[in-house]
Computed example of a mutant assay.
Amino acid sequence: MYDPQLAAAAGMHNGSLLTPQEKPAPPPPKPDNTSSAQAQPVSGSRNDAGESQQALLTPVVPDVGPDDLRGLSPERVRALLGGPVSVAEEPPATVWQYRTGSCAADLFFYLDITSQELRVVTLAIRGAEDTEKARKACLADIRARNRNGGRS
């Protein structure tokens, strides 16, 4: 199941990694032709405006399912799920493990011969139930734990 929004959030397009490009310079500011009598009062503090702008700039990442993680690099997985609780070398794989109070997820990274980068090839999610809904809920719990500084 390919989700273009999730792929874009993970930095991928049609199975290929997107490479960062230099942002163009912003246009010069327009001259202010309004007089001080016409200026509208600004409500809130500078901090409120900055926080509002930050909220608008924060990307919204949809729920992540097991299929969405396959093919991702360690950097992309870390961006989506946060850091793992343990990393094990099980040649030829590198295994990242995530755990919450109710489930665990093991992501198996293998070297992609073409790109010479590690990619998730398979994953195992264990919990009380073995359903797609339970696996997605587990990944959501992992993301929530990492957003809360490791506390779920």
Results as ranks from 00 to 15, higher is better:
124 A>P: 00
144 A>C: 09
4 P>F: 08
114 T>F: 14
104 A>F: 04
19 T>V: 12
80 L>P: 01
83 G>M: 08
7 A>D: 10
20 P>Y: 11
27 P>G: 10
43 S>K: 10
45 S>M: 07
61 V>R: 05
11 G>Y: 01
91 P>G: 00
135 R>K: 14
111 L>E: 08
25 A>D: 10
110 Y>E: 12
124 A>Q: 13
127 G>I: 01
32 D>K: 00
19 T>F: 06
101 G>F: 01
109 F>N: 02
38 Q>K: 06
50 G>I: 07
107 L>M: 10
34 T>A: 08
140 A>V: 05
118 L>I: 00
78 R>Q: 14
10 A>Q: 06
58 T>C: 02
94 T>G: 00
21 Q>W: 03
106 D>S: 11
121 V>C: 09
5 Q>A: 12
138 C>I: 04
61 V>Q: 10
77 V>D: 01
131 T>V: 03
5 Q>L: 14
117 E>V: 11
49 A>K: 15
104 A>E: 02
6 L>C: 05
39 A>I: 03
24 P>A: 02
98 Y>R: 01
15 G>C: 06
132 E>Q: 11
14 N>E: 12
110 Y>F: 15
106 D>M: 06
18 L>W: 01
9 A>K: 04
108 F>R: 07
103 C>R: 04
143 R>I: 07
49 A>Y: 08
99 R>G: 01
31 P>T: 08
125 I>E: 00
113 I>C: 10
52 S>V: 14
146 N>G: 09
24 P>R: 01
50 G>R: 13
8 A>T: 07
56 L>I: 07
114 T>D: 13
13 H>R: 14
